[in-house]
Design a protein around this nucleic acid. Structure first.
Length: 409
RNA sequence: GUGGGUGUAGCUCAGUUGGUUAGAGCAUCGGAUUGUGGUUCCGAGGGCCGUGGGUUCGAGUCCCAUUACCCACCCCA
C-alpha cells in the first residue's frame, strides 16, 4: 500500500470544512483591513530563501526541500511565505511606486523536520505582508488584525512581543553578547555553546537552570536598543495599552528568520503541546533591499493553519438541501431528473438504488439533508412526489409540476 | 539528527504467568409483521495481531532486527 510521505497529511472532508470556515473568515477580516490577495509559486529559486530567511537559520540550513530541476537550476519548495511575496513585490517594481501595499496569502509550506504535534513537513500558513509603511501604527494595526482573527474563532492565547533592534543596534549588541558568552562558555550547556555561533540570542530561552543563573549578568537586548527602536517599541506598547490589548513583553522572543527587525510578536496557546505558537510575525525593514529592491519597510505575520484548526470549534452543522430516493425501479429516472433541477437551488444527493422508505429516510438523515424526497409506486400513479421535512417532521405530497417549479415546500 | 512510547477489525482499544475457534465499543449492512429518519432491541459481514527472523510441542503474548506512526529535545507557524 502506498502511503503519504512522512509529515504529509491528507486534508479529509471533515477537516476541510473547518479549513474553509477558517479561510473564509480570515480572508474577510484581512480584506476589511485593506489587504489584497496574492499568490506566489510554491517552487522558487533556492537563492531566494538563502538571502531572505538567512543561511544561518535552521530553516535554510537543514530543513529545505531543495533539489536541482531538469534545467540544472537549484530550486526548493518554499519553507515560508514572506520571501516569495517580497520577491514578487520587487520583481514587479512595486518598490518604485510610493505608497503602501498590503497583501495576504495562504497555501502550503514545506520544511524537512521530524514531525510531532503541531509540526508537519507540509503545512499551511495564512499570512499578511504590508510594504512601505514604517509608522509604528502599522505594527499595532497588524497585531490588531491578527488578534481580530483569533478572537473571531474564540481562541485563547497569550500575546508576546519584543523588539529585536535594527541594523544600528542589533549587530553591536550581538557582538557584545557573543563576547560575554565566550567569557562564560565553560559554564554553559552544550546546546548553548553551539548557540554562541549559530544564534546567540537563543541562549536566553535555554531551559537549563544553570545556564539561566550564569546568564543573569549578560547584556540584555532591551537595554541596548537605539533611540529609534526604543521609541517605536514604546509607542507600540502604549497603543496596545490604550486599546486594552493584553500582552507580555518577552525579551527571549526571537524570530528564527534572519530578516526580522524591531517589533516581533507571537500568539501562543497552552492547548497546542510543545509547538505552542499559533501565529507569529514582525517587522522586516531590510528584507526588500536584501532582495535587490529599493529600501522599503515591511511587516507581516503568518498563522499556522493546522495549529489554529486544532483550536477552532466548528459551528454546529445544520440540515440543508435535498435527498432523493426511489422505492420503485421505474422511479429512478424521475428522481434523477428532479434532483438535477434541485441542484440549482441547494445541495442535492440522489440515491440510484431502489430502497425501502425507511432506508431512504435513514440515508437522508445521515447525509444531513433537510428534505427527503421519495418516489414510489403511489407517487408514480398520482404524478406527485412525497417530501418530508426532516427538521419540522412534516410530510407532504406535492404535484410533480409544482415541485419542478419550486413551489409546494 | 537524539531520546521515549506505540503498532491487534474501517475507527478507538481489551487480550491474564505463552495454550486450542482472536474480543468489545463505535461505524457499516440487514431485521424488529406490508411505505416513516436521529433513540432502542436483535443479527451479520469484516483480522497474515506492522514486517522479517529466532526461542518453544505451541507465540497476539518472550527475544532480536526492521519499518511506520505518536510524543519530546531541537526549531518554528
Amino acid at each position: 500500500m502506498i502511503k503519504a510521505l512522512r509529515g504529509m497529511k491528507d486534508i479529509l472532508p471533515d477537516e476541510n470544512e473547518k479549513y474553509i470556515y477558517f479561510l473564509e473568515n480570515a480572508t474577510k477580516l484581512a480584506k476589511n483591513y485593506g489587504f489584497e490577495y496574492i499568490e506566489t509559486p510554491i517552487l522558487e529559486e533556492t537563492a531566494l530563501f538563502k538571502r531572505s530567511v538567512g543561511e544561518s537559520s535552521d530553516i535554510v540550513g537543514k530543513e529545505m526541500y531543495e533539489f536541482v530541476d531538469k534545467g540544472g537550476n537549484s530550486v526548493c519548495l518554499r519553507p515560508e511565505g514572506t520571501a516569495g511575496v517580497v520577491r514578487s513585490f520587487v520583481e514587479h517594481k512595486f518598490d518604485r511606486i510610493l505608497g503602501v501595499k498590503r497583501y495576504f496569502y495562504y497555501g502550503p509550506m514545506f520544511r524537512y523536520e521530524r514531525p510531532q504535534k503541531g509540526r508537519l513537513r507540509e503545512f499551511h500558513q495564512f499570512g499578511v505582508e504590508c510594504f512601505g509603511e514604517d509608522n509604528p501604527y502599522e505594527d499595532v494595526n497588524i497585531i490588531l488584525l491578527l488578534k481580530d482573527i483569533l478572537d473571531f474563532f474564540g481562541i485563547n492565547y497569550t500575546l508576546k512581543i519584543n523588539s529585536l533592534g535594527c541594523q544600528n543596534c542589533l549587530p553591536p549588541f550581538r557582538e557584545l553578547l557573543v563576547k560575554h558568552l565566550y567569557d562564560i562558555e565553560d559554564g554553559l550547556c552544550d546546546d548553548c555553546k553551539r548557540r554562541i555561533k549559530t544564534n546567540p540570542i537563543r541562549v536566553f530561552d535555554c531551559k537549563n537552570e544553570s545556564c539561566q543563573t550564569i546568564l543573569k549578568d549578560a547584556p540584555r537586548l532591551g537595554s541596548a536598543l537605539c533611540k529609534e527602536c526604543d521609541e517605536s517599541f514604546e509607542f507600540v506598547k502604549k497603543k496596545l495599552d490604550e486599546l486594552g490589548v493584553e500582552y507580555e513583553v518577552d525579551t527571549n522572543l526571537v524570530r528564527g528568520l534572519d530578516y526580522y527587525t524591531k517589533t516581533a510578536f507571537e500568539f501562543v496557546s497552552g492547548d497546542l503541546g510543545a509547538q505552542n505558537a499559533v501565529a507569529g510575525g514582525g517587522r522586516y525593514d531590510r528584507l526588500v533591499e536584501f532582495l535587490d529592491g529599493k529600501s522599503t519597510p515591511g511587516i507581516g505575520f503568518a498563522i499556522g493553519i493546522e495549529r489554529i484548526l486544532d483550536l477552532i470549534e466548528l459551528p454546529k452543522k445544520e440540515m440543508n438541501g435535498y435527498y432523493f430516493g426511489a422505492m420503485d425501479e421505474d422511479a429512478v429516472s424521475l428522481i434523477f431528473r428532479l434532483g438535477h433541477i434541485c441542484r440549482k437551488r441547494a445541495k442535492t444527493e440522489i440515491s440510484y438504488q431502489k430502497k425501502s422508505l425507511k432506508a431512504h429516510l435513514k440515508a437522508a438523515d445521515k447525509k444531513a439533508a433537510r428534505y427527503c424526497v421519495v418516489v414510489g409506486e403511489n407517487e408514480l400513479k398520482s404524478n406527485s412526489v412525497w417530501v418530508k421535512d426532516l427538521v419540522e417532521k412534516e410530510e407532504k405530497l406535492i404535484k410533480l409540476e409544482d415541485f419542478e417549479k419550486g413551489s409546494g415546500l
